[in-house]
Nucleic acid binder design. Structure first.
Lengths: 140, 140
DNA sequence: ATAAACCCTGGAGTCTACTCCAAGGTCAAC
DNA sequence: GTTGACCTTGGAGTAGACTCCAGGGTTTAT
């Protein structure tokens, strides 16, 4: 059994964040002392680890809430359901990657065209591009 | 001269967003009518276009604030300064790309290991991986 | 007993980029 | 004149994931 500060140390998640997770139904203490202190069991540690791993692969807390409810009642859910969930997240990530790649290319192009020297910014090709939109390949 | 609604239509940026930009010192009306209506000139249109392009290459409004102040007093700034700014943004984007690629790989690995069929989630390798952290190559 | 560490709650704040609401004044077309 | 579109302001809300504050109770070690 752990008090909240002990659990925070054990998991690297702050007291406040633990309370936040509880408020959002991600974790729950096993019970309370007479003084109202939260008492957590090892199950909470495992739950937090699950949350940390899921966050690590890009799931939002809202996503994780769904995964946790699936995990809680595995017999009521299928592999198909979980995989669909994960595939949607993957698609999301791929979309973000595409957007960031576009941005990267545009920034690279801007940088290549700029001398980067001590000359006055009056002649700066980056500023000019932003002013005029004259960067055909970047869809500005 | 445009009123705010006209400028909104012209640029595709909402009235509220224009006021928000004004509040954040990104744009300013040329003046006000006696009734207090904002009146904008073509310079505001150009400024908003600049903002839109800069946003399009990943700059935050805070970044854009800096770029705009450079643009305003080009003679006080160098190409070097602008390029440094853009290079920092590029590094930022590259970092995000690296992180998203890591996440993508992890999600792909999770998905590959899962049959995705109608079987009970009791045996779901995705859930198991999140529970146990048993995904060596993904640094969960 | 004392002091410090720890805990509780409710509420508010941070960050970023908007978006909405309420109340009331102004402008343009009929 | 009337009506509807338009504008103003101040303030609050959204999304998501925290983080901080104030006031007060509890536990632990000295």
């Amino acid at each position: 059994m752990y008090r909240i500060g002990e659990l925070a140390k054990l998991t690297g998640v702050s007291n406040d964040t633990l309370r936040y997770y509880e408020k959002n139904k991600l974790i729950a203490p096993a019970g309370r002392t007479d003084a109202g202190y939260r008492m957590y069991e090892d199950e909470a540690v495992r739950q937090i680890r699950f949350i940390q791993r899921a966050k690590g692969v890009g799931f939002t807390l809202s996503d994780i809430n769904e995964l946790l409810s699936i995990q809680l009642e595995k017999t009521e859910h299928s592999c198909h359901e979980v995989k669909t969930f994960t595939e949607a997240k993957l698609a999301d990530v791929q979309q973000k990657l595409a957007e960031l790649n576009r941005i990267k290319l545009a920034l690279e192009k801007l940088n290549e065209a700029c001398c980067g020297g001590p000359e006055s910014a009056e002649h700066c090709s980056i500023l000019q591009a932003l002013e005029t939109g004259d960067l055909a390949d970047t869809r500005l």
